[in-house]
Simulated scan of single mutants.
Amino acid sequence: MEKTVLYQFLIEVPRAAAIWSVLLVLALGVLTVLVARPEPTGPVEKPADQDAARAANEEADLRRYAGEVAVAAAGAAQNAERRRAAWRTAQTDLDRVWAAYDEAESAARRLAGVAGLPTPRTGRTPAEYAARERWLRRAAMAAHWRGDLTARQLSDVLAGRSGWDPRRHPAEQEVVLARVVRDNRLAAYRSAAARERDLWRAAELATEAARALSAEAYAAAERLRPDRLPAPGRVAVGRPGPVVRWRPARLG
């Protein structure tokens, strides 16, 4: 009997010790949680505070955006003014080139009427042909320095290419030269007209962009007016709210 009781004691005691060990670990874990639990002892941000902060952030964003748009609008206005100035210059150049073409057209038309008259008879001597060549060279050089002949055309005249014949009478050469000058001035007028149209379109686009940015800058400034800003949430004034801090829990 005593052996049986001793045997049971030796078996049950370790089992109970194991059970109590588990319970002790659980108890210590619960105690740790209780000791470390937070206790509210300070102010906590209220929804009204959050609304006020959100409104302040929105106002700051509006001010930043309004400033950026204002700078962009000022730059667009300056760009539009530069474009308009370039167009006005091109328009002046176009008028000048047209006047030069009209003058050349009148000269070519007048010489074309004279071309129907008989060519003066001169002796066909080497001196005569040399004089004709000198005249053509001088006339071509003068037209080139005026900008009425390109370097390639002048080279053709001096080399007797592209239909240029220094042996022809100066009256005939003058008619041909007048037609070439007229055609060159007509090409210059067409080029100036195309440039003037392009600059006019660029000025129109720049003006429209400046107008749109100016309207957007005005709208952004309007949104910054005090009566247009969103009203911040009201913050209740009273005892401060709880602040979270840690302290040991009271046991018992």
Rank of each mutant, 00 (worst) to 15 (best):
E45I: 14
R167T: 15
T122K: 04
A115G: 05
L34R: 07
E68C: 04
A219V: 09
A74E: 15
L158T: 03
E133R: 15
A27K: 02
L224D: 10
R223E: 07
E196C: 00
L158Q: 03
Q8V: 07
A112M: 08
R83Y: 08
A80Y: 03
R185M: 06
A194Y: 01
L26N: 01
R225K: 13
V25G: 06
V33D: 02
E81G: 12
V25L: 09
A77W: 00
R182V: 02
L117M: 07
A215W: 12
L23E: 15
G238K: 13
N184C: 02
L10T: 09
A108M: 10
V114H: 11
Y189R: 09
D183L: 02
L229V: 06
L199R: 01
V25T: 06
A249Q: 11
Q153P: 00
R146W: 03
A60M: 05
D227V: 06
P126W: 00
T207S: 15
Y7N: 12
G252I: 13
R152A: 08
R152E: 09
R197I: 00
P230N: 08
T4G: 02
G233T: 06
V69I: 14
A115P: 06
E204C: 08
L26M: 10
A219I: 08
A220Q: 06
A193L: 07
V13G: 04
R179A: 08
L94M: 11
E174T: 14
P40G: 15
R234I: 13
D102V: 05
R138T: 05
P240A: 12
Q50I: 14
L31S: 08
A217W: 10
V25K: 02
D61E: 13
Q8N: 09
G238E: 10
G116K: 09
E128L: 03
R137K: 09
P248V: 09
Y218D: 05
R110Y: 05
P226H: 03
A17V: 13
W98R: 14
W164A: 05
S214D: 11
L149P: 07
R245V: 15
R54Q: 12
R152G: 02
H144I: 06
R201A: 00
R182L: 01
E222T: 09
G116S: 15
A140Y: 03
T122R: 07
Q91A: 06
V181Q: 03
G116T: 14
A17R: 07
D165H: 04
P232M: 04
A17L: 13
R138H: 05
V71A: 15
R168C: 10
P170N: 04
L154W: 07
N57I: 08
G42E: 00
H169Q: 04
S155W: 12
R201M: 00
V5S: 11
Q50H: 09
T41R: 12
G75L: 04
R152I: 04
Y101Q: 06
A73L: 05
G123K: 07
V44A: 12
L10M: 14
E39F: 14
A202Y: 00
A215I: 11
S155D: 15
Y101R: 12
A72S: 15
L213W: 02
A187M: 04
T125R: 02
G241L: 01
A151Q: 10
V44C: 07
V33R: 04
Y7C: 05
R190Q: 14
A192W: 02
T92W: 11
V30W: 15
G233C: 07
R134Q: 14
G75I: 00
T207Y: 03
V244M: 13
A159T: 03
R84N: 11
A140L: 06
D227T: 14
R109F: 00
R82I: 02
R146P: 03
L111Q: 09
